[in-house]
Amino acid sequence: RDLEAFAERFKQRRIKLGVTQADVGSALANLKIPGVGSLSQSTICRFESLTLSHNNMIALKPILQAWLEEAE
């Protein structure tokens, strides 16, 4: 599925960039996405391991996609 593929790709890119889950969570606040502050390390972990609810995964995907584009 698309979400699973993105979560795996996100994790691989994050590791390759040398960024921790906690770093991603705090960096999201710097993107200044309306309504989005920082996220906890555990939320990033649960996204990568696909243990969040489907609706949460869908909500987080564009936010994490934006971070990934900014980081690369």
Rank of each mutant, 00 (worst) to 15 (best):
R1I: 08
R1E: 15
R1G: 14
R1A: 15
R1D: 10
D2Q: 11
D2H: 04
D2V: 06
D2M: 06
L3C: 02
L3Y: 08
L3V: 09
L3H: 06
L3M: 14
E4A: 12
E4C: 07
E4M: 13
E4Q: 10
E4W: 08
A5I: 13
A5V: 13
A5P: 07
A7G: 03
A7F: 00
A7L: 00
A7S: 04
A7C: 06
A7Y: 04
A7I: 12
E8D: 09
E8S: 12
E8W: 08
E8H: 13
E8M: 10
R9E: 15
R9C: 14
R9Q: 15
R9P: 01
R9D: 15
R9H: 15
R9W: 10
R9I: 06
F10I: 03
F10R: 01
F10C: 01
K11F: 02
K11Y: 01
Q12H: 14
Q12F: 07
R13K: 15
R13D: 04
R13E: 12
R13P: 00
R14Q: 01
R14L: 01
R14K: 03
I15Y: 04
K16N: 03
K16C: 10
K16Y: 11
K16G: 13
K16H: 14
K16F: 12
K16P: 00
L17G: 01
L17N: 04
L17V: 03
L17R: 02
L17F: 02
L17I: 13
G18L: 03
G18V: 01
G18W: 01
G18A: 03
G18N: 01
G18E: 06
V19D: 03
V19T: 06
V19K: 15
V19I: 09
V19C: 14
V19R: 14
T20E: 06
T20P: 04
T20A: 08
T20V: 00
Q21F: 05
Q21T: 14
Q21N: 06
A22E: 12
A22W: 07
A22N: 08
A22Q: 12
A22T: 06
A22V: 06
D23E: 12
D23N: 10
D23G: 10
D23P: 02
D23L: 07
V24P: 00
V24E: 01
V24G: 00
V24Y: 00
V24Q: 00
V24A: 12
G25C: 15
G25F: 04
G25Q: 08
G25S: 15
G25Y: 05
G25V: 15
G25R: 07
S26T: 11
S26Q: 12
S26M: 12
S26H: 12
S26R: 14
A27Y: 13
A27T: 05
A27K: 11
A27Q: 14
L28K: 01
L28P: 00
L28V: 10
L28H: 01
L28W: 03
L28G: 02
A29E: 08
A29P: 07
A29I: 06
A29D: 14
N30M: 04
N30F: 01
N30W: 06
N30I: 02
N30D: 12
N30P: 10
N30H: 11
N30Q: 12
N30S: 12
L31C: 11
L31G: 03
L31P: 05
K32S: 11
K32R: 11
K32C: 09
K32M: 08
K32A: 10
I33W: 05
I33D: 08
I33Y: 10
I33G: 10
I33P: 06
I33E: 08
I33M: 09
P34I: 05
P34S: 11
P34H: 11
P34G: 11
G35M: 01
G35A: 06
G35H: 04
G35L: 06
G35E: 05
G35D: 06
G37T: 09
G37R: 11
G37H: 15
G37V: 07
S38Y: 14
S38I: 10
S38G: 11
S38R: 13
S38P: 12
S38T: 11
S38W: 08
L39Y: 04
L39W: 05
L39R: 02
L39V: 14
S40A: 08
S40D: 14
S40F: 02
Q41P: 12
Q41I: 07
Q41D: 12
Q41F: 06
S42N: 07
S42K: 14
S42A: 12
S42D: 15
T43N: 06
T43W: 07
I44W: 00
I44S: 00
I44G: 00
I44D: 02
C45F: 12
C45T: 09
C45R: 13
R46M: 10
R46E: 09
R46V: 01
R46H: 10
R46S: 15
R46F: 08
R46W: 03
F47C: 08
F47T: 00
F47K: 00
F47Q: 03
F47L: 04
E48W: 00
E48L: 00
E48D: 01
S49E: 15
S49L: 07
S49T: 12
L50Q: 15
L50M: 13
L50P: 01
L50V: 11
L50K: 10
L50W: 01
L50C: 12
L50E: 06
L50G: 14
L50F: 11
T51H: 08
T51D: 07
T51K: 15
T51F: 05
T51C: 11
L52H: 02
L52F: 02
L52E: 02
L52K: 09
S53D: 14
S53F: 01
H54V: 10
H54W: 10
H54E: 07
H54S: 10
H54A: 13
N55L: 10
N55C: 08
N55G: 13
N55F: 05
N55M: 07
N55W: 05
N56P: 04
N56G: 13
N56W: 12
M57R: 01
M57Q: 01
M57F: 05
M57I: 06
M57Y: 00
M57W: 05
I58L: 14
I58F: 07
I58S: 13
I58A: 10
A59W: 11
A59S: 11
A59K: 12
A59E: 09
A59T: 12
L60N: 02
L60E: 01
L60Y: 11
L60H: 00
L60S: 02
L60I: 15
L60P: 00
K61M: 14
K61C: 13
K61S: 05
K61I: 06
P62I: 03
P62N: 05
P62G: 03
P62E: 04
I63V: 13
I63W: 05
I63K: 04
I63D: 05
L64M: 06
L64T: 02
L64N: 01
L64W: 00
L64Q: 02
Q65A: 11
Q65L: 08
Q65G: 11
A66M: 07
A66C: 05
A66Q: 10
A66S: 13
A66D: 15
A66W: 10
L68G: 02
L68Q: 11
L68I: 14
E69H: 04
E69L: 11
E69G: 09
E70S: 11
E70I: 09
E70F: 03
E70L: 04
A71Y: 15
A71Q: 09
A71M: 05
E72L: 01
